[in-house]
């Protein structure tokens, strides 16, 4: 199992099925996330700028996600995990 560290949070993840991953925080919360969100979280953990995260994800997955769409998703996960 691999882990992602964002600030004080440690998230572990494992492949689940159909490009989905199970993300677990040592604070006790779980999410099922897709590979796009996983890649975004990994970039976030490396302190990559949000604009660069958006551009990288859009290019890799041939998407047109807006900055706020992606930020909202990441904030939701990290925000809930921070409860």
């Amino acid at each position: 199992m691999d882990k992602i560290i964002i600030g004080k949070n440690i998230f572990w993840y494992r492949f689940e099925y159909q490009n989905k991953y199970l993300l677990y925080s040592t604070k006790g919360y779980f999410y099922i996330i897709n590979d796009i969100i996983l890649d975004s979280l990994i970039l976030l953990s490396k302190n990559v700028n949000n604009i660069i995260i958006k551009d990288t994800i859009n290019q890799k997955y041939n998407l047109n996600l807006s900055q706020s769409q992606l930020e909202d998703r990441l904030k939701t996960i990290c925000g809930v995990f921070n409860k």
């Binding site: 779980f30 999410y31 099922i32 998703r73 996960i77 809930v80």
Partner: peptide, 13 residues
Amino acid sequence: DYPEYIDDDVCFS
């Protein structure tokens, strides 16, 4: 107090 489903990709169990 938890959100049940945030969208299709993200959920709590």
